[in-house]
Write a protein that binds this DNA or RNA. Structure first.
Lengths: 318, 318
DNA sequence: AATTACCCTTGACTGAGTCAACGGTACGCC
DNA sequence: GGCGTACCGTTGACTCAGTCAAGGGTAATT
C-alpha cells in the first residue's frame, strides 16, 4: 500500500481506537441508561425523534438483529414504554409508538446523556468548543456522504464578511502554488487586488461574492471596474477542488455577469491563463470569447495569458 | 441550560450516535477479528504497539475489568499468543509479552482493520480525505487534551508558505472585527501590507514568521524596514485567542527582535492601539517603550494609536 | 395459484462484561 | 519489626448483549 494513501487510513484507525475508548469511558463511568441498556436507549432515542416508526425501520436504522429487536420491544412493551400495533399499510409490519411514559423515559435518558457530554465538555476550554463542533460536523458530513448518496445542502452566494478577503488571498495562493507551482508573487498580486477592493470600491459598480456550502467557504469571484469605459472585469474566480462539480463556478460567474449587466456595464473582460482549463470551460459556457493570447513569465512559471471578453448589452438584448 | 451552551453538546451527541453506528457497521459487515473479539483485538493492538506492557497498564489504558482481562489473557496465553511473567519491578504486577505468533496475529488483525477502513475510505472522494483526517485529528486533540492534563506539543515558528500571507489577512481582519468592530478598511490595510511584503522584500532585512501549534497556524508577526534609517518595524503581531497563554506572542516578538538585532538594525518601532492590551504587555516585557500616542478614527472606530520603540544596539550591549 | 420475499416471533445458544470474594505483595507509618 | 491500607491478579457466579436458525404469516410478482 502506498504511503500517501495509507495516511488517512492510519488517521481514521487512530480515531476509531480513540473514540471507542472515549465512548466507553463516557458510558461506564456513570450509569447512563439504567434501567435500560445502550441498545434500548438508542431505540428509545430513535422513537422519540421520529414518532411511531415501524420495527423494520428501527432494524435498518440501528442495524439490529430482528430477533433481538423483537424481544427488546417486547420488554419495552411490558414496561409500558411502547405500544405495538400492526401497520395500516402493511399488516406484516409493526408500528411502534412511544407511550406518554415512554416519552418521559426517553426525555430522562436524553437529559442524562446531555449531562454526561456536558461534563466531558466542561474540561474543554470554551475557546476550543466551536472548533470541536465544527470538526465533528465535518467528519460526519464527509463520512455520511460516503455512506449514502451524498445528500448535501445547496451552495449559495453571499457578500464577503470580515476575513473573507484574506481567505480569498489564502486559497488562491495555496491552490495555484499546489497545482501549478505559482510562487509568492501571485499571492502578492491577489493581496494587492483585494487591498484595492477593500480600500476603495464603489459598491454599486464593484462587488465580491463568496460561495458557501455546508457552512464552509468554497469559492469566490470579484467584479470590478476596468480602465476601459463601460467595462467590468471579472477577477479571482476560484472554486475549492473538493467542491467542484456542483456548478459553483457557474453560479459565481452568473452572479458576476448578472450584476454587471444590471448596473449598466456594456462589456465584461477577464484575464486568465491557458493552463486553467476548468475555468476556461466555465467562461465559454457563459459566452466569453478569447480575444487575445500571449506568453509571459510570471509567478515563477512560464504561462500563456489570455484575455476573454463578453458583450453584455447589444444586438442580443430585446 | 442556555441555548448557546447546549449547541456543542447536541453536536457531540449527534456525533456519538453517528459514530457508534458507523463503527458498528464497520465491524459487523465483515468478520474483522475472527477468531478473536473486539476487546481481544484492542489488547493485541496495544501490546503490539508498546512491547510488553503490564496487565495493569492494559486495564487502565482500555478501561477493562480486572477479571475480564485476566480471563482474556488466560485465553490468549493458551493460544500461544502472549506470555505472562511477573514484573521484575513489582512481583504483584504481570508483564505481558506477545509471542512471535502473537505478533503475526496482531499484524493480521491490523491488516484486516486497515482494509476495512480502506474500503470505507474508498467511498470518500479523494479530495475530501485530507479534510477528514484533519478534522479527526482536531477532534482527538481537543478531546484528549480535555481528558488528561493537556499534553500538547510545543509551538514553533516557521517562514510563511503559499497561502500563509492570505491567512494573516484573514485572521487579522476576522479577529479585530469580532473583538473591536474594525471594518473592512482594516482588512484592506493588512492586505496591502502583505502585498507589499510579497511583491518586494529583502529577505536579509525583512521577514515574516508563522507560529504553528499541533499542525495549525496560531500566530504571526512581520519585520520590515522602516523609513527611518537603521530602523525595523514590527507589524501584524497576532495570536489566535484559543492558543493564547502558551507564550506564542513572546516567541514571535523574540524572533522578530533577534532577527532585527542580528542583521544590524539599531532601532525597532511598532504602531499599535491602546485597546490591544494583551499585545501591549508583550511589548513591555520585551523592553519596548511608549514614545507617542494620539487619537484617530480608523477602521470605523475611535482609537488611540501608540508608537512604541526599542533600542536594539547601544549602551546595554557588551 | 404458486413462488418468492419480506415481516415478525421464538427457542437455543454463544460471547461480552460485571461483581464480589480472595490470596498475595508493596508501601507508608507508627 | 508489625500493622493497616492499597493495589495486583485470579476465580466463580452471574447478567446482559447479540446471533442463528426455524417457522408462521402476509404482500408482491407472475
Amino acid at each position: 500500500m502506498p504511503h500517501a494513501a495509507a495516511r488517512p487510513v492510519q488517521e481514521i484507525r487512530a480515531f476509531n481506537r480513540f473514540y471507542t475508548n472515549l465512548i466507553g469511558a463516557l458510558d461506564y463511568s456513570r450509569r447512563l441508561y439504567v434501567p435500560y441498556t445502550l441498545t434500548e436507549a438508542r431505540v428509545l432515542y430513535e422513537l422519540n425523534h421520529a414518532r411511531h416508526l415501524d420495527a423494520a425501520d428501527l432494524r435498518a436504522e440501528l442495524t439490529l438483529d430482528a430477533g433481538y429487536l423483537s424481544r427488546l420491544l417486547g420488554k419495552l412493551e411490558k414496561d409500558g414504554i411502547v405500544e405495538r400495533a400492526p401497520s395500516t399499510r402493511d399488516p406484516r409490519r409493526q408500528r411502534i409508538t412511544l407511550t406518554a411514559r415512554g416519552r418521559e423515559t426517553a426525555a430522562l435518558l436524553d437529559e442524562r446523556s446531555s449531562e454526561a457530554v456536558g461534563s466531558l465538555l466542561s474540561d474543554v476550554p470554551a475557546a476550543q468548543r466551536p472548533r470541536l463542533a465544527e470538526a465533528m460536523r465535518t467528519v460526519r458530513e464527509i463520512l455520511s456522504g460516503a455512506e449514502d448518496g451524498a445528500a448535501r445542502s445547496r451552495p449559495f452566494l453571499r457578500e464577503p464578511g470580515p476575513g473573507d478577503l484574506g481567505w480569498i488571498v489564502e486559497r488562491n495562493a495555496a491552490l495555484y502554488a499546489a497545482e501549478y507551482g505559482f510562487n509568492i508573487d501571485y499571492e502578492g498580486l491577489v493581496a494587492r487586488i483585494v487591498a484595492d477592493f477593500a480600500e476603495d470600491h464603489d459598491p454599486h459598480l464593484e462587488r465580491t461574492w463568496i460561495a458557501e456550502l455546508d457552512g464552509r467557504r468554497v469559492g469566490c469571484v470579484m467584479c470590478v471596474r476596468d480602465d476601459a469605459p463601460g467595462t467590468a472585469r471579472l477577477r479571482l474566480l476560484l472554486v475549492e477542488p473538493d467542491a467542484r462539480g456542483h456548478g459553483i463556478g457557474d453560479q459565481l460567474v452568473s452572479a458576476c455577469i448578472d450584476f454587471a449587466r444590471g448596473v449598466g456595464y456594456r462589456e465584461m473582460v477577464l484575464w486568465t491563463n491557458d493552463i486553467l482549463g476548468a475555468a476556461r470551460a466555465i467562461y465559454q459556457r457563459h459566452g466569453f470569447v478569447l480575444v487575445d493570447e500571449k506568453p509571459h513569465r510570471s509567478f515563477g512559471v512560464d504561462l500563456v495569458g489570455q484575455d476573454w471578453q463578453l458583450h453584455l448589452a447589444g444586438e442580443d438584448t430585446p
